[in-house]
Structure formats: structure tokens, C-alpha cells
Design a protein around this nucleic acid. Structure first.
Lengths: 209, 209
DNA sequence: AGAGTACGGTACGTACCGTACCTTATATGA
DNA sequence: TCATATAAGGTACGGTACGTACCGTACTCT
């Protein structure tokens, strides 16, 4: 009798109403799925709610807008590059493997999403969780510094000769290419960046004899 | 009597209804003004129409969406960099003056607008008038090639030694910085790019003895 | 058991989009 | 000079998405 109100429990027969982390994860998962199938621009809060089998209210209770929601979804579900600096014996190999390792993760997020986020994001008055952090806090930059540090320890480079701009050059250019190339970026861009730009530069500035 | 319908001619007393290029320019001017005061995201077609003292219909008759309208406004009103390669006697001066010349125009457009355009722009199936053209058609790249060519003629560089990536490096990095730096980019980034990256690279690869 | 919390669900007001429709001014040329 | 086509002015609409309010109801916790 009292059960008649349930009208065929809408989910599985077990505990019906999700809460807290369970619901939060379901929403983030839905946002990530929606992002992959629909793309950032056409993604709507309502579609995310529907896919998560909940409603907009539950979404807005947690994230105030689309940008914040998607950032949270990226943090949780986007493929993360390995940030441990490979240490294989020479600088070229280390940088190449590192860049190749971040290539696919960057590509998985996609230019449309980045542009959308950076376009919509408040920026001012919002010093938290930006899509692209300043260089000093950038994990990819830190990884490159570690790689260069290893090469210095091995004696490949004279210490402290490389300006920050040189160290960040490969990651910056890779990101630039991802942002501005509609369609897919060929993976050999990584090799070009290393062999035509980074290594000649290193050689000119700081290579030990 | 028949004049009573005019209700105090809303514009100047002279020819009332604008057409063709006059109206088109008024709309583009309004779009440009609106872009500068409101910003790309919050700019609406209706606001442009109101500022141009016309209505949405007249706008949509000419441009199918916001992105196209803004691109047209940029082409007409955005400050254009000088594309003639300076030829002052040495490569460093030429590249510096060139980069400094494109600095302000790039900054005038602004990251928000570029991100918005690149986010909304169809891209696929639309091979026309992209915000960022491919390198081969990029006017800034062509200018850099001319500058390098001048240096080769002077004997500063050995001819045909510089890969395209080296030539486009300064412009690419400058654009990257403009796109990813919220707030204002300091102008000495230009000097850094030239002195820490481009010139050492040129020296390493192609400088004549 | 009771009380607070947070989800489910709906409905609403707002904003903007893009289009349809009609009226009216202007350019053109027969 | 008048007729006609064109394009402007202007309004109104359907549609979509946003973000919020409200309320009933399940769940949690003590």
C-alpha cells in the first residue's frame, strides 16, 4: 500500500536515492561522458543532469556554472600525463618520452574545451583553479625542470645556464599547436620541437663540451 | 498632415533610412564598440543592433551569427600590424621592431575574443576566414620569412638553413603568451623571445661566420 | 523515534537566439 | 512621373538554456 507510491522503484531495486559522493561522482562522470560525446559548446547542464539520472538542482548545488563543473570533471576523469621525469641517460630521450607522454592527454581534452573554458572563465577576482596555471605552478614546467636537472647531474649540461623560457619552450609550443590546430595534430610535431628547436638551443646555450 | 506619421524624424532631419554600405558600416562599428566595452562573451546581437540604431533583422541579413559578425568587425576595425619587413641592417633590430609592431594589435583584440571565436567557430566544413589561418597563409609568418630573407641577403645568415618552425617561433610564442596570460602581457616578453630563444637558435643553426 | 539534511522533481522568470511577418522608405527604370 | 522591386524598420514569436524557488520525500544521524 505504502509502496504503491514508489511506482516501480526507478533505479535498481536497492537503495534508491543517491547522496553525497556517490551522486557527485555520478554527475562528474556524466559531465565527462557528455563532454566526450557532445563537446563543450553544446554541452548543457540539463543534459548532464539527465545523463546522471538526476536534475539540474543537484548539479547547481555543487558547481555554480558549466565551466566549474567541467573543470571538476577534467580533474577527476581526464587522462593525466605521467609527471615523473624519465631518466634514461640522455636529454633527448628524456624530453621526447616526456612530451610524447603528455601528447595524448592534452589531445584528449581538446582545443574546443580549452578555448571554451578560457573564454568563459572569470579569471579576474578568481585566483583559484585556472585552466592554465602560471608557469611557476605548472606541473608540466616542473617536470621539464626535473628533466633538465637530471641532464645537469649527468654532466650533459652546464648547470643553471638555461633560461626558464627555454625550459618551458617545448610544452608551450606543444600547447600552442594543440590550441590552434583545428583537426588533429600529428605526433611528429614533438620530434620537430625537440630536434629543431629545443636541442639546438640547449646546445648553443649550455651544452658541456 | 501626412507628415504627422513621422513623429519627429528619429535621426537627423535629412535622409532617414540607411541602406547598403552605410548601414553595414554602422553595424560593424557598433559591433566593434560593443566588443571593446562589453567583451565578446557578453556581447549580444541585439545589443549590437541597438547600438547601431537598427534591429536584429538587419544584422542577421548580413552575418549568420556572432562569430562571423565579430570577424567582419575585426577585419574592418581592429588595428592592423605593419607587415612590411623592416630592413635596418641587422636581424635582431628587424625582428624586434616587427614583434613590437604586432604586440599592441594582438593585445587590442584580446584573449577573450580569440578564445570565444575559436571556441564557437565551426571550423569543420568551413574552410573560409578562420581566426588563425594555417602557417602557409599566415601573413605574420610571411613577414618573418621576409625578414629572414633580408638577413640572408646581407650575409648574416647562411641561406635556407632555418626550418619553418624556427622562423615562426617568435610569432607563435607571442601568440601563445597572449592567449594564455590573463591580464596584460609585459612588452619585454618580446625581447626575451628574441634574445633568449630566436637569436641563439639562429646563431646555432645558420649564422654565417 | 525525531529532526535535520539533501535529493527528486517541477515550474518558473530571464535572456538570448534566429526567424517570420508585415509595414514603410528608398532606389531604380519603364 | 509613376510603378515596382528591394531592403530597411519594427514587432512578435517559438525555441533553448540558464539559474532559482519551491515542495514533497527519502535518507542519515543522534
Amino acid at each position: 500500500m505504502a509502496e504503491s507510491k514508489k511506482e516501480q522503484a526507478p533505479n535498481n531495486g536497492a537503495g534508491t536515492r543517491r547522496r553525497g559522493d556517490v551522486l557527485e561522482n555520478a554527475i562528474l562522470q556524466a559531465a565527462w561522458d557528455e563532454l566526450e560525446t557532445t563537446g563543450y559548446n553544446r554541452l548543457t547542464m540539463e543534459a548532464v543532469a539527465v545523463r546522471a539520472q538526476t536534475n539540474k538542482t543537484a548539479v547547481y548545488r555543487r558547481w555554480p556554472n558549466k565551466a566549474q563543473l567541467i573543470i571538476a570533471a577534467l580533474i577527476k576523469f581526464a587522462p593525466k600525463p605521467s609527471l615523473e621525469a624519465a631518466d634514461m641517460g640522455d636529454l633527448r630521450t628524456d624530453v621526447l618520452t616526456f612530451l610524447q607522454g603528455i601528447f595524448k592527454p592534452l589531445q584528449a581534452i581538446g582545443a574546443e574545451t580549452i578555448h571554451g573554458l578560457m573564454s568563459e572563465y572569470p579569471g579576474k577576482e578568481h585566483p583559484m583553479s585556472k585552466p592554465l596555471p602560471p608557469r611557476s605552478e605548472d606541473a608540466l614546467f616542473a617536470a621539464m625542470k626535473a628533466i633538465v636537472g637530471n641532464a645537469e647531474k649527468r654532466g650533459e649540461l652546464q648547470p643553471d645556464r638555461l633560461p626558464e623560457r627555454v625550459i618551458s619552450l617545448p610544452v608551450d609550443l606543444l600547447r600552442y599547436e594543440m590550441l590552434t590546430t583545428h583537426g588533429s595534430v600529428s605526433e611528429d610535431i614533438v620530434v620537430q620541437i625537440v630536434d629543431e628547436l629545443f636541442l639546438p638551443l640547449v646546445k648553443a646555450v649550455a651544452q658541456a663540451e
